[in-house]
Simulated scan of single mutants.
Amino acid sequence: MRKVYILLLIATLAITSCTTTAPLAKSVAYKGMYEEKPSVALIMPPINRSTNVEAKEFFHSTLYTPLADAGYYVIPPFLSMEILKKESAFDSELFLDTPLNKFAEVFGADMVVFTIIHKWDKSSLASNVNVDIEFIIKSAKTNEILYTRRGEIRYNTSVSSGLGGLGGLVADLTLSALNTAGTKYVDVARVCNYYILKDFPAGNYSLNHGLDGAQLAGLKSFKVNLSAK
């Protein structure tokens, strides 16, 4: 019986070691980015699977800046949106698993940015905005996934009245509820985009281009608490 327990322990340790992933360098985790060296990004309209119909606009309007700051030329979203609507290509989900070479021909894009909003919920009582967002960035030339990351982000909007006791608790809850209701959700989307893309490889227009490959990439899937403070 003891031998059986030992064998089970060894098997458990083996399975655990196989499922543990060590941090990877960016050049390994995002190998395609360093091989293809894309410089022009096309932002597709976000795919909204949440119950908040406005979440799509929140994210679409805040994606340009973090990508541009990372060193990429981003096709102006207002321009690309008009063309996509005209060509009946507004539904991004139709193109997730199809060849993207047409986007390279029409827009001159090297990579196509897809975002999937899995959840966008606000809780005034808990003073949180809970977001589950996924990025899938694909090559417009090879159709390969160059970058993918998904995060569950809890954005805390609570504030303190500075008062103590039961009265202070009630004041804190009231202020936090009002603060959550008055939160600019574009700001929440902006923070989420910056956080997820903070490990994005530097583009051709960045001084760090080609110099950040040894830096560690972020986790492909993560959970994090962020604060409005």
Score class of each variant (00 low, 15 high):
residue 3 K to H: 12
residue 3 K to F: 11
residue 4 V to A: 10
residue 6 I to E: 12
residue 8 L to H: 08
residue 9 L to T: 10
residue 10 I to P: 01
residue 11 A to L: 15
residue 11 A to Q: 07
residue 12 T to C: 15
residue 13 L to S: 06
residue 14 A to Y: 13
residue 17 S to D: 03
residue 18 C to N: 09
residue 20 T to H: 08
residue 22 A to Q: 10
residue 24 L to G: 04
residue 25 A to R: 11
residue 25 A to E: 13
residue 27 S to W: 01
residue 27 S to D: 07
residue 28 V to Y: 03
residue 30 Y to R: 01
residue 30 Y to Q: 01
residue 31 K to G: 06
residue 32 G to F: 04
residue 32 G to P: 06
residue 33 M to W: 09
residue 40 V to I: 14
residue 40 V to M: 04
residue 42 L to A: 02
residue 42 L to W: 01
residue 44 M to I: 13
residue 46 P to N: 04
residue 48 N to R: 02
residue 50 S to I: 03
residue 50 S to T: 08
residue 52 N to T: 15
residue 54 E to N: 08
residue 55 A to V: 03
residue 55 A to L: 02
residue 56 K to P: 07
residue 59 F to C: 04
residue 59 F to Q: 01
residue 63 L to Y: 01
residue 65 T to L: 11
residue 66 P to G: 07
residue 66 P to A: 08
residue 67 L to I: 00
residue 68 A to G: 06
residue 69 D to G: 00
residue 69 D to I: 00
residue 75 I to W: 00
residue 76 P to V: 03
residue 77 P to F: 13
residue 79 L to E: 10
residue 82 E to K: 15
residue 82 E to H: 14
residue 82 E to G: 15
residue 84 L to H: 04
residue 84 L to W: 03
residue 86 K to V: 06
residue 86 K to C: 04
residue 90 F to C: 08
residue 95 F to S: 04
residue 99 P to W: 11
residue 101 N to R: 08
residue 102 K to F: 12
residue 105 E to Q: 14
residue 106 V to A: 12
residue 112 V to S: 06
residue 113 V to F: 07
residue 114 F to C: 06
residue 115 T to D: 05
residue 118 H to Y: 14
residue 119 K to T: 10
residue 119 K to H: 11
residue 120 W to G: 02
residue 120 W to Q: 03
residue 125 L to V: 10
residue 127 S to F: 13
residue 128 N to G: 08
residue 129 V to R: 06
residue 129 V to W: 02
residue 132 D to V: 05
residue 132 D to I: 05
residue 133 I to H: 11
residue 135 F to C: 01
residue 136 I to Q: 11
residue 137 I to G: 00
residue 140 A to F: 08
residue 143 N to D: 10
residue 144 E to H: 15
residue 144 E to N: 15
residue 146 L to N: 00
residue 152 E to M: 10
residue 156 N to K: 15
residue 159 V to F: 12
residue 160 S to Q: 15
residue 160 S to I: 03
residue 161 S to G: 05
residue 170 V to P: 03
residue 172 D to I: 09
residue 172 D to W: 14
residue 176 S to E: 07
residue 179 N to E: 14
residue 184 K to V: 12
residue 184 K to A: 09
residue 184 K to G: 09
residue 186 V to L: 14
residue 187 D to H: 09
residue 191 V to L: 12
residue 192 C to H: 02
residue 195 Y to L: 05
residue 195 Y to K: 04
residue 201 P to W: 01
residue 202 A to K: 01
residue 203 G to H: 00
residue 204 N to M: 11
residue 205 Y to M: 12
residue 210 G to Q: 00
residue 211 L to M: 13
residue 213 G to P: 06
residue 216 L to A: 10
residue 217 A to W: 05
residue 221 S to N: 05
residue 225 N to R: 10
residue 225 N to G: 05
residue 227 S to T: 09
residue 227 S to V: 09
residue 227 S to F: 10
residue 229 K to W: 09
residue 229 K to C: 07
residue 229 K to I: 08
